[in-house]
Lab assay of single mutants.
Amino acid sequence: MKVIFLKDVKGKGKKGEIKNVADGYARNFLFKQGLAIEATPANLKALE
């Protein structure tokens, strides 16, 4: 799953980066902790 990092995550990505991560890791950790959001077209446009 492609995500946009909202904060730096050690070993995974830095704020503003778009990367592929495992679906479960994204849903169960990154999204719940507020560290990333899904890289949807609307979210990508908002990032610009």
Rank of each mutant, 00 (worst) to 15 (best):
35 L>E: 03
41 P>N: 08
21 V>S: 02
30 L>S: 00
40 T>I: 05
18 I>Q: 05
26 A>K: 03
33 Q>I: 09
26 A>Q: 08
37 I>Y: 02
25 Y>P: 07
22 A>G: 11
48 E>I: 12
5 F>T: 00
46 A>D: 14
35 L>Y: 11
47 L>P: 06
41 P>V: 12
21 V>P: 01
23 D>F: 13
40 T>E: 03
10 K>S: 11
45 K>D: 11
26 A>I: 11
39 A>S: 04
17 E>H: 05
45 K>M: 14
30 L>W: 03
14 K>H: 12
37 I>S: 03
46 A>P: 06
2 K>I: 13
27 R>P: 02
23 D>N: 12
11 G>F: 07
21 V>M: 10
2 K>T: 14
14 K>W: 09
40 T>V: 05
43 N>S: 07
8 D>Y: 07
8 D>K: 05
43 N>W: 04
27 R>N: 10
36 A>M: 01
7 K>L: 11
38 E>T: 06
43 N>I: 09
31 F>G: 01
10 K>W: 14
36 A>L: 02
19 K>L: 10
46 A>M: 13
32 K>D: 09
4 I>F: 08
43 N>E: 06
9 V>H: 04
10 K>P: 15
4 I>L: 11
43 N>D: 06
8 D>S: 11
22 A>D: 15
21 V>I: 10
2 K>G: 05
9 V>K: 01
11 G>A: 05
3 V>N: 00
40 T>W: 03
36 A>G: 05
46 A>V: 10
25 Y>L: 09
34 G>D: 07
35 L>V: 06
8 D>Q: 05
44 L>F: 04
42 A>W: 04
5 F>P: 00
5 F>Q: 00
39 A>R: 01
24 G>W: 15
2 K>V: 13
48 E>L: 13
15 K>R: 12
8 D>I: 03
35 L>A: 06
13 G>T: 03
47 L>D: 05
29 F>E: 12
19 K>A: 09
37 I>V: 14
28 N>T: 10
28 N>Y: 13
5 F>E: 00
14 K>Y: 12
42 A>S: 11
21 V>L: 06
13 G>I: 06
19 K>D: 03
41 P>Y: 11
16 G>V: 01
17 E>W: 04
29 F>P: 02
14 K>A: 10
25 Y>R: 07
7 K>M: 12
23 D>V: 14
18 I>F: 04
